[in-house]
Write a protein that binds this DNA or RNA. Structure first.
Lengths: 299, 299
DNA sequence: TAAGGTTACGGCGATCGTAACGATC
DNA sequence: GATCGTTACGATCGCCGTAACCTTA
């Protein structure tokens, strides 16, 4: 068994079981891959791939399990490369952070502000996407660490932890008639309601809460970030339901704001990274700093 | 980077940083190993080993981390071999079980009785030792799975789970004067007390409990298994404190028995195996059967 | 017929073993 | 001086690329 053969398995999988494509990615001719695969399967004494005629169409039962281990091997090999890279370039490096707009816009600025002071040479790539996408990005090693809510916790191949709790808040201009009511969700239904798109910032929680009152409820306007929602609410399009983090000091000029936690439930933000992935020291630092910062702010 | 080089790191470590010994184990001449090591370190751009003159004396800081990953790679490679082995020999195989006397003698018989019915061709190696040793045996891959109390849980490189709760019991012959008292620990102190050796079957818990009453308390006779203790108690050497599992139906002829859980605390038995280790189906079966059996008996 | 996969063959590079040398205890 | 590690050199083995061939959409 060789590392080349192990990597070949991975590439074949990534290519959708197309050996030609896999070998191309490995910068060798197709026949070389064909031979290596044959050698590997001979050594193991079992076919790793199911074939339709000659073509590869998927893993065998054994293949599935072998593939799992092959991924481990590749991961560890990458880790070794990362270890020496981060050593070579002492305090330099790059953090590929995946997060949602809410975190990027309202939480991370203060974290990053401090981080770049202590780690001036670390580059930052901030990838904004939905929690679901972030989960896939982690698994595909497109990002090093994810900070978001939902989905991420309790995945067995991820290390994750809760960073802080938060709740949704209701916002409306100071003059809005809603402020003359008891602020129940039922009363809110008399006005257009703006909130997050499906999949963002626990919007489902809000939706469920309203649907307990009005089964066919839909938001009137949805956006994927609070800035847009706030802008529209400012223009008196209706009531906004956003994450508490998105309500800032200067928004008090335009809006009143009440928490909705008791009516739609509490939420939480998590961090996560692949469990067997090597984390360079500066990434550990970043996560620590993040946790420490939100602890001060929400703890 | 090659698998050979990775394995070389492992072997050098295992040989106490003696390259000659390591290469010998790998069935190549010493110079071959020397070269491979040089190549690896050149490729990484960092020395993996600290040297005193030319001799290897330990890992560098980078080396430590690389070594961690190297172990992962070796583990995964072994797993692949195990996967195909267990496939080749269908229902054959071997379970190397590490456990304590208490489990082996009083719990496992009923488990194994059933297991060999459904898996007649699986060989069993039962290694008896203290929990602490079992932990090391797991890490050295001397055993596949451990069943015991203490120590094992909450180790990050182990997968472990609680199997059942139990408590210590006090035993003494029917005619013993202790049965005329209120059975407090304080009253027990008037008699010689026999229990487990340090490190076995949560003996520390019992010791602590007695020491709360009598600071300088020591057991009068200790043994590493309940059979010995029971034999001595039968001969009227004193009171016995053993695990509840060790008190069997036929012992009622000779002893009375009272639980001590409220006085010395409850205990639990766990199972554990290396977290990244491939478990063949029959090993999964074994653990399931074990859990199921103790659930019926204690659950 | 094009695309995916296998097999045969020749060349080249990688690794090995021998052996001589250097360093350390 | 014995043990441990490095370096040089020639031989061998393994892997690659070319190319011809086979199989199936």
């Amino acid at each position: 068994m060789t590392l080349t053969q192990i990597k070949l398995l991975i590439e074949i999988y990534k290519s959708g079981f197309n050996l030609s494509e896999a070998t191309e990615k490995m910068h060798v001719v197709q026949s070389a891959g064909s031979r290596q695969l044959k050698l590997l399967e001979e050594e193991l004494g079992f076919p790793v791939f199911m074939r339709k005629g000659q073509r590869l169409i998927g893993f065998t039962q054994v293949g599935e399990k072998v593939f799992e281990q092959a991924k481990q091997i590749c991961m560890a090999e990458h880790n070794i490369k990362r270890i020496v890279e981060t050593m070579q370039s002492q305090d330099e490096g790059c953090i590929r952070l995946g997060t949602t707009h809410t975190q990027a816009r309202y939480i991370l600025p203060s974290v990053l502000e401090q981080f770049i002071l202590t780690h001036p040479k670390i580059k930052l790539h901030i990838e904004e996407s939905s929690p679901e996408n972030l989960y896939h990005f982690l698994k595909l090693d497109k990002i090093d660490v994810a900070i978001c809510s939902e989905l991420i916790s309790k995945q067995d191949d991820l290390v994750s932890g809760k960073a802080y709790n938060w709740e949704h808040v209701l916002i409306a201009p100071h003059h809005h008639p809603i402020w003359d009511t008891d602020l129940s969700l039922r009363n809110c239904l008399h006005f257009p309601i703006l909130s997050y798109m499906k999949g963002f910032t626990h919007s489902d929680k809000v939706l469920q809460a309203f649907r307990k009152i009005d089964e066919g409820f839909e938001f009137d306007i949805v956006a994927s970030d609070a800035d847009v929602i706030k802008t529209y609410v400012k223009k008196d399009f209706g009531l906004g339901v956003i994450a508490q983090m998105a309500f800032e000091e200067e928004d008090k000029q335009h809006f009143k704001c009440v928490p909705l936690g008791h009516q739609v439930g509490k939420s939480a933000t998590y961090y996560a990274h692949l469990s067997k992935r090597y984390l360079p020291p500066y990434l550990d630092d970043f996560i620590s700093l993040f946790l420490q910062t939100v602890l001060q702010r929400f703890g």
